[in-house]
Amino acid sequence: MRTLGLIAAFCLGGLLFFISFDFPSWGDALSPASRHVSPYYIEHSLEDTSVPNIVTAVLADYRGFDTLFETAVIFSAGLACFFLVRVSERQVPAARFYRHLATGITFRIEKGGRLPEGTGEFERIDSLWVPYDVIIGMTCRLVVPFIQLFALYVIAHGHHSPGGGFQGGVIFGAAIILFAISTNLRRTLKRMSERSSALLSSLGVLIYAGTGLLCLFMGAGFLNYRALAAILGVDQVAARSDGILIVESGVGIAVAAVMVWIYYNLSSAGKQDEGL
């Protein structure tokens, strides 16, 4: 059976290798790809959409369907991770660990016992990894807001420079994950619960698809942002630019929330009690 698989893999690989000789050479100006669509995008994207960054114009406007389904794929990745890993029933951990804040003494409470947490005297800590580190905590606290600001900049500046919804969303999600790593999972869950991350990730896809549907209701094709000109009160070219921004922010919300959601599930093995 293994040899059979090996033979099949070699045949397929050899076939792909053989076919690759028929491809046009890299950067060939006469290849079909650079003769038909590319020149149109390069020559007309600025006057069509008033977006200087051609990549963004192609990604969110000309090929908007593609990007919509990419966002849906990312959303379904988060959903799949949730369904595969998440443990629904509440398990009582064998022992909980608490730190007395004034003295730094660690308590080990067995059989599901709890110490009062809200009073500011005790702090629950993880059993495996107990960082009591001022340096890392302070640095992350210092850096995280700037990373989030930069993420918003990347999303909003995708029209003019490399960037856009996916990249900015990833940076935003990474900032939240950095906060989770530097403190702990429970404190992060208090800031951004699992429910809100799930809702936000579906909201991002909804913004994208809803923009497309709105164009449909306004009498143009799906994701044809020209139709939004009447609502936004601008001319059609500016409406395409604004439509790209709306869609990109939807992508950013979805990507950031899905990253955080996947992190919650993977880092705590689905229990979302103790984690990295």
Binding site: I135, I136, T139, C140, L142, V143, F146
Partner: peptide, 11 residues
């Protein structure tokens, strides 16, 4: 940014 983060990461 790197001068703040890199020593922290090493630490």
């Amino acid at each position: 940014l790197v001068f703040i983060t890199s020593p922290t990461a090493t630490h």
